[in-house]
C-alpha cells in the first residue's frame, strides 16, 4: 500500500471565488438549455399531434362524404334539377307541337314566314 497516499490525499487548497461564479453560470446556462430543449420537444410533439388529428379528421370527413353522397338531399336536388325540367310539360314534344299549330293557325302571316 502506498505511503504517500494517506498523507497527501486529504490536503485542501483554497479555491478562488470566481470559480464558483463561473460554475454557477455554467449550470444556469445548462438549465436554460434543458428547459428550451424540453419546450421544443413538447411543442414538436404537440405539433405532430395536431397534424395527425387534422389529417385524421380530414380523411374521416372525405370518407364520410363518400358514404353520404347518394343520400345527400341537397346534392340530389342540384344534380337532378335539369332532368326534372326536361320531364316538365314545357319539354314535352307533343305539347310543343300542339302549341306550334295553335300559333300558326292564329297568325297566318307568321305561318307564311316560317313555313
Amino acid at each position: 500500500m502506498n505511503e504517500l497516499k494517506p498523507l497527501h490525499q486529504d490536503n485542501t487548497v483554497e479555491v478562488p471565488r470566481r470559480v464558483w461564479n463561473q460554475l454557477e453560470s455554467k449550470l444556469n446556462n445548462n438549465k436554460q438549455k434543458k428547459k428550451l430543449l424540453r419546450m421544443k420537444v413538447i411543442s414538436g410533439v404537440a405539433a405532430c399531434l395536431i397534424a395527425a388529428f387534422g389529417l385524421s379528421y380530414l380523411s374521416v370527413g372525405i370518407s364520410g362524404d363518400k358514404g353520404s353522397f347518394a343520400s345527400n338531399g341537397n346534392y340530389k336536388s342540384m344534380v337532378f334539377e335539369d332532368l326534372e325540367k326536361e320531364e316538365s310539360s314545357l319539354y314535352d314534344f307533343n305539347q310543343v307541337a300542339k302549341l306550334k299549330s295553335v300559333i300558326l293557325n292564329s297568325h297566318p302571316s307568321f305561318a307564311k314566314r316560317h313555313r
Partner: peptide, 30 residues
C-alpha cells in the same frame, strides 16, 4: 472544492487550466 482543487493542482501546473478543470469537473459531477 478545496480537496478537489488540490487534486487538480497536482496534475495541472497552470492556474488557469486548474480552475477550468475544476469548473468542468464539478459541472460533470452535478
Amino acid at each position: 472544492s478545496g480537496l478537489m482543487f488540490s487534486v487538480v493542482k497536482r496534475y495541472l501546473k497552470n492556474e488557469e487550466d486548474a480552475e477550468d478543470a475544476l469548473i468542468e469537473s464539478f459541472f460533470k459531477i452535478f
